[in-house]
Design a protein around this nucleic acid. Structure first.
Lengths: 392, 392
DNA sequence: AGTGGAAATGAAAGCGCTTTCATCGCCCGG
DNA sequence: CCGGGCGATGAAAGCGCTTTCATTTCCACT
């Protein structure tokens, strides 16, 4: 209470300005580029190799950075040999390899993958394009993708499209100029322009988090309509009749909702109220969503289906704030099976998606494609599982 | 109950194999490279420009992809002019620009930034190195960084070091070969090797999530010790005496803990039990942590300080499961002010960090450095705020 | 009409690698 | 003792851009 007025408990902000020479790198231009020797060692061994006229190997790079040519001269071999040591060591004699490695260590050489990628036409880069990573269901897939590709010597370029994916088309265009060797996409609906560019790029494209019979290349996901139907069946089998939804209507949630409503109407349940909230769903919006539902006139629902676990958590919180017992007064079911779902109180019934598998399989599919392997599953349904817990 | 045995509610897995020609890209090698014409248009207008002997501009690229030279020939200008249109349009006559843009559109030209970066020594790449992004406190900073840098024409390379940051050194090494123009790092403690390489790279380096007087370059964060002290003061001022901790002891949490304990012992409170759990903290570990604390013999704590909100959420859940009233039986305070903290039941008292600001300021600092701007704040303490809610 | 200077463009030399192709020893079998 | 073949290495030609520097063009003014 009075605490908010206690400035001593508030972290102090302090900021320092340094205006000395170390503050910018201007004075180091062309000197402290990657791999160069420390400035306090102007007589480093490299400099002592005087590139006399007739010297067979390349002169030191003009820019001052250590290049593969510098390493080659120090090791007394040709640049091609250094390149081989780095990329195809099995082609090089053990003694030579050793000499080259010593030269690399001595010069603190850092290869330039921009140059390497240009020459070899292999960027060893993969783009991951997702709506958001902030407390999102996508992060685990991106993390699995990154980890697996890292092992294989690839790096991941992160592209964030926002929710809804308004920036996707421009992002894909921009990122293709990096010549990625693969693209990880979220969802299966993309701008026509995006399709064109991606097909023209001729690289593996993995669409995820949904399923389609007509993928650009590979799709790894599951049927959102089937999720909706499964939840409908589950809730009606449990005897719930007055149903409602708290829903953040992103593209894929929309399909879950349609599946849910279609299955319900087959069972003669037609009056399902939906409390729509903006995507992405979070705890706050879940609370607000349920509040709106309960404050409206009409019979109160027996069960609420939420488009995400985050929303469901909010629904749980709001229900508790209103002293409703769960599932007695209100049953709640979420979607996603976030880590927390098993540990909310009461534990949350939800739909589990193997998010890690999506990222991992995407990585494997890309690597297989890049290897030119013939048999790649084009449509992978990783399925889902309804996890029953205490909230229903 | 019986539901787990209802296979019809379980998402079916299905997998299809396609073995037709479209399954791999082998047959397209050198054809469908980025920017090439669609294969069903073999008489594309480009092909009709017969590169007769004496043709002043470059012949079509051997690899088949559309290059800047192809665009130049079609537009009837030199490659340098096309390059200018793309990078410094203010230097080019309006009519010429128009002709070049038309040629770019017609050829669906996609610039090659590997080549551009090599020639200009500007990769327009920034590396973001964080322990994890899976439901983590770091994602918002990475997202803000990515968004801001995207605007400026940069892309972000994502590097995941794991928890603890065992892979950081190797990751930094690998990623420097991409010649990033800046590096975003988590924490202020790094391997000596990492320091060396980063300094040698001569690029802006922003360390985050902590503070130090001796940053590699720029540090943007806050004092974890001060957080610990502030929480200690707050809890004791509220009258709590029997205190405990549920703690995931990562590098920075360790410092918060020390600050907390030091401030308490100054107040004569020395017997603070800590329930340690593995990092990263999550809801499950929070529950387990509190359970261990309560099941041990001895007086039960009046208040628990958790190293993260995720953990605090678990503590809340476990307390509820045990029918403890909060804060009457047990007060709970977290750290991080995740979105959900305001909406748990009861709402969680916690410490707010402006995560978004960390990413944004990091981006701004890098861009300022890259621009060669002189005055860059080397040490930025973004502070923190203790947010009092219902759980204490 | 002539001229100076700015604006616009082109020529050419790389950026730092990879990769093909050629060359050079060297060992083994005949 | 000689030729074939293989393992190991080097020479050189790019990869597709950017960026000086030089040249041409175009005006505004005298």
């Amino acid at each position: 209470m009075a605490f908010r007025d206690r400035p001593d408990l508030i972290g102090m902000r302090f900021v320092r300005f340094h205006r000395d020479a170390k503050t910018t790198f201007d004075h180091l231009k062309g000197l402290l580029v990657p791999g160069s020797l420390p400035p306090d060692d102007p007589t480093g061994s490299l400099k002592q190799i005087d590139p006399t006229p007739g010297e067979p190997h390349p002169a030191p790079s003009a820019s001052g950075a250590i290049t593969l040519g510098d390493v080659a001269r120090l090791a007394g071999v040709s640049p091609s040999t250094v390149s081989r040591v780095l990329n195809r060591p099995e082609l090089v004699n053990a003694k030579t390899t050793e000499a080259v490695r010593a030269a690399i260590a001595e010069t603190a050489y850092v290869p330039n993958l921009l140059a390497g990628g240009l020459a070899s036409k292999r960027s060893r880069l993969v783009a991951a394009i997702v709506p958001t990573i902030a407390n999102s269901i996508f992060t685990e897939a991106v993390e699995a993708l990154t980890d697996r590709l890292e092992e294989a010597g690839y790096h991941v370029l992160l592209g964030l499209t926002g929710y809804p994916a308004t920036r996707e088309a421009k992002l894909v265009e921009a990122i293709l100029s990096r010549r990625p060797e693969g693209v990880f996409l979220t969802g299966v609906n993309h701008a026509p322009e995006t399709y064109r560019r991606l097909r023209a790029a001729g690289i593996p494209v993995v669409e995820t988090w949904d399923i389609t019979d007509n993928p650009i290349d590979v799709v790894i996901g599951f049927s959102h309509a089937a999720v909706g139907r499964a939840v409908a069946t589950y809730l009606t089998d449990k005897g719930y009749r007055r149903l409602a939804m708290v829903w953040a209507d992103d593209e894929r949630a929309k399909i879950r909702r349609q599946g849910f409503l279609a299955a319900l109407s087959e069972k003669g349940i037609g009056d399902v109220r939906t409390s729509m909230v903006p995507a992405p769903g979070n705890l706050q919006r879940g609370r607000e969503g349920l509040a709106r539902l309960l404050d409206e006139p009409g019979p109160s629902p027996q069960a609420v289906f939420c488009s995400s676990d985050a929303l469901a958590q909010g629904v749980l919180a709001e229900a508790q704030a209103r002293h409703l017992t769960i599932p007695g007064d209100l049953a709640v079911i979420g979607f996603g099976d976030l880590d927390l779902a098993a540990y909310t109180y009461p534990a949350l019934t939800t739909v589990r998606i193997d998010r890690h598998a999506i990222g991992l399989k995407a990585a494997e599919a890309m690597l297989a494609r890049i290897d030119g392997r013939q048999e790649v599953e084009r449509t992978v349904d990783i399925g889902f599982r309804l996890i029953e817990r205490a909230s229903t």
